[in-house]
Design a protein around this nucleic acid. Structure first.
Lengths: 236, 236
DNA sequence: CCAACAACTGTCAATATTGACAGCCTATAT
DNA sequence: ATATAGGCTGTCAATATTGACAGTTGTTGG
């Protein structure tokens, strides 16, 4: 499978559009024996309504169904992906409580599938799904392809999220000063401004000053939100 | 390389001790041509002094040096691992600003190395390092082994963190009620108790009641800490 | 039926926060 | 030398929070 090595370099290094990048990943999926490929990215923020982006070469009708019926919310593979980076197979057991959804997916040819997710420093979770209509996934096939699938899941996320994140999450490239970071760290650990003041040997007024500057930079309404955002985005 | 498949099953499924598990991972590293193997786990909390656990088969003297001189804080591979899941090679460029550290590592036989990190739902970052004394890592060797290394980094973290996390981070298995989660979500997004009250159509008093219960469960001093902990641990 | 639990509400006082005013000091880059 | 930025401090009033008191309702499971 020489093509892997070649496409690999392309996928990682060229700065293609997201679309081309996804095509490359899908092509690698095809080489692994999967007609269908899907990548989903779920940002960490805002927590009460996280942004989700999907890219796939699924049948258009199914993509539309999935979107309008908000299947994302019930899809057991998504639920698993958000809890664990362990790969998961599409099995009857997995879809036990979502039979209608599972039935419908299969009617579009999405019968045998595999998925793995990955979380990055910014709290974003990426999920790669590989699927096909034809042939069940045997243990031996999985064992043989496990390494490449793991690699592909990783690199799909690294490459795609690098391109998608900046647009979707502008806060991700905020620059916080050292002081702001220090103050937010203590804040996130539950210290009051007064406590932080004595820890850092500065005035309470100054602590609040830094917090408020950080909150402005992070587009946060108050210190709680600022601490959460900074922590989730990996600034602390 | 049939052994891979066999050990793979063992590594994932048997509930060995951490130590045995690490041995297994190190053995897989050896099969990939690396004498040395190290796994580091950095928890997300507490933010102001995150817990770190290390396991390695490095020379004991170097492990001691690394620990006492707190090299963790300056090690450029660690710095990279905390920012990106992309694999990284030990190169002169990488250690440009930490020459003494790099020199010392090499004096212990740690000359050629590779590392990759991975973050999970609980915010913990795991980092796998594979290294050796003898032979430089060529592009072609890396290309040939990339898949297995990616797989190993992933599975080392999945397996080891599953065993290490519960002990190190007791908050990780807190059970929050649905109401508590909802209230914390809004809190983390920067809403005040009053705002959450009108969003959820309950009294401000009730909002504070849920927040305070959640804070107790999470061992948090106040709502900011509760929101950060819940968010970092993936409860929201 | 009863226990246990989640959800919900009330009041009051002590603390903490935010927001808006205004200004000083130091290091770095132009 | 001057602009710029980070770090630092002050006061005051309006809001928000926390903590400690005491209680109702509805559901679930033994």
């Amino acid at each position: 499978m020489k093509a892997w090595q070649e496409i690999q370099l392309q996928a990682l290094q060229t700065s293609d559009s997201e679309h081309k990048l996804f095509q490359t990943i899908a092509a690698l999926g095809t080489e692994l024996g999967f007609d269908y490929c899907a990548y989903g990215l779920r940002l960490a923020l805002p927590l009460s309504n996280p942004k989700i982006v999907k890219k796939s070469n699924y049948p258009t009708a199914w993509q539309a169904q999935y979107q309008t019926k908000n299947y994302c919310a019930i899809d057991p593979t998504v639920k698993h992906a958000l809890r664990s980076p362990q790969p998961i197979l599409w099995t009857d057991g997995l879809f036990a409580s979502t039979a209608a959804f599972w039935e419908e997916a299969r009617s579009f040819g999405l019968r045998y599938g595999w998925a793995q997710s990955m979380r990055d420093v910014h709290g974003a979770t990426g999920m790669l799904t590989l699927a096909r209509s034809d042939e069940p996934l045997s243990e031996t096939e999985l064992a043989a392809k496990a390494f490449k699938m793991a690699w592909l899941a990783q690199n799909a996320h690294i490459a795609l999220s690098r391109r998608l994140l900046p647009k979707l999450l502008p806060e991700a490239d905020t620059k916080l000063s050292n002081r702001e970071i220090a103050v937010l760290r203590w804040t996130a650990d539950g210290k009051t401004s007064g406590e932080i003041a004595s820890i850092m040997k500065i005035t309470e007024r100054t602590v609040n000053f830094h917090i408020s500057n950080a909150a402005t930079k992070l587009n946060a309404a108050n210190k709680t939100s600022a601490a959460v955002k900074a922590a989730m985005l990996g600034f602390l």
